[in-house]
């Protein structure tokens, strides 16, 4: 199975720093420190709740090579769909999905302390005692958001390395939406040698650089998201879609733990051109919302905009509206 490789912004050789063992109660700071410094290899089960409500369990192998930054080098390898025979159509679909989106599964599909200061402001951590996970001593903690429109996280943190061994994401009604469970864990990693080109994802330091990289298309804009005041820009990348070759600017915003994305895909046609509301001069924002996801799409001047985040984050409606107004005013 072809692994998915992810490399940090610096692309520097991995810093093989041993983490200091601790049996104390984990904190947000210790978990972020593990991202910066801890190498590990973990075989885990990642459970997805599909749109039709079915649960699909995928076995994967994650190798993380810490590089002193919050974006460590990693390799994510799809192993199997639990209960599916190898080579089945479903297995092939999932393999292709991991090939295309594996980076997103690691960066955005798990619990990450992306900004310690904001995370400490917007969340609180509560310890619930000692558990055994993947044959290792761990402490169970719950991370509560200070706002009702964000997820609640239950995490079994390895007592020795502060690496999460079990992650469960709940909404405010305690409905489970995502789950990752470690099966085996080792605190070492084999050197990661990229065998697949990573040119389809290019990290950008700022919007101006991304705009220049994309040849300054007319409809591209630097979104104003002041309405989501507890979120700030976390990451900015240009993706080359390997399927259709379209370039898109992916901007991720975080409140320290949670994330939402604004994606601008250039050189697209208006998907809402034939709607009756468009004929009357109105501008349309397509909206999908369920407990798992809030997704809003709109179009202006050859650029398709996607605003997406967790289902509870209903304020994304206002984010989308304001970004659309910003686009129309350009």
């Amino acid at each position: 199975m072809a692994p998915v490789l992810g490399q940090g912004v610096t692309n520097a050789p991995a810093a093989k720093t041993k983490a200091v063992s601790t049996s104390s109660i984990p904190t947000l700071a210790s978990m972020q420190q593990a991202v910066l410094n801890q190498d590990y290899t973990i075989e885990q089960l990642r459970r997805f709740k599909e749109e039709n409500g079915n649960i699909v369990t995928v076995r994967e192998l994650l190798e993380v090579d810490a590089n002193g930054t919050l974006r460590p080098d990693f390799e994510l390898t799809f192993l199997e769909v639990v209960g599916e025979p190898p080579g089945s159509q479903l297995t092939q679909d999932w393999q292709q999905t991991y090939n295309r989106y594996g980076t997103l599964f690691f960066r955005q599909g798990a619990f990450n302390v992306r900004d310690l200061v904001k995370a400490s402001t917007n969340y609180s951590l509560h310890d619930f005692g000692i558990v055994i996970r993947a044959g290792r001593l761990a402490r169970r903690v719950v991370v509560f958001p200070n706002a009702i429109d964000k997820a609640i996280w239950l995490i079994d943190v390895d007592s020795l390395t502060s690496v999460p061994l079990f992650i469960a994401e709940f909404d405010h009604s305690l409905n489970l939406f995502a789950n990752i469970e470690a099966v085996t864990f080792t605190s070492t990693v084999q050197p990661i040698t990229p065998t697949l080109p990573t040119s389809n994802v290019t990290a950008m330091p700022d919007f101006a650089s991304a705009q220049t990289f994309l040849n300054s298309p007319a409809g591209l804009l630097n979104p104003n998201v002041m309405v989501a005041i507890d979120y700030t820009l976390d990451n900015l990348e240009v993706h080359d879609d390997p399927i259709n070759g379209r370039k898109k600017l992916v901007m991720s915003y975080t409140d320290g733990i949670d994330q939402f994305m604004i994606v601008q895909t250039v050189n697209t046609v208006d998907p809402f051109a034939n709607l009756p509301s468009s004929a009357s001069g109105a501008h349309t924002i397509g909206r999908f919302r369920d407990p798992a996801i809030s997704a809003l799409v709109f179009w202006d001047d050859q650029v398709a905009f996607h605003v997406a985040g967790r289902g509870l984050l209903k304020r994304l409606d206002e984010v989308a509206r304001r970004v659309y107004l910003q686009a129309l005013s350009q």
Partner: peptide
């Protein structure tokens, strides 16, 4: 919309 659009975040949540 009656179905989630083809956005990256939808794949992160639903998978394949």
């Amino acid at each position: 919309l009656d179905r989630a659009p083809d956005v990256e975040f939808a794949t992160v949540r639903y998978g394949s």
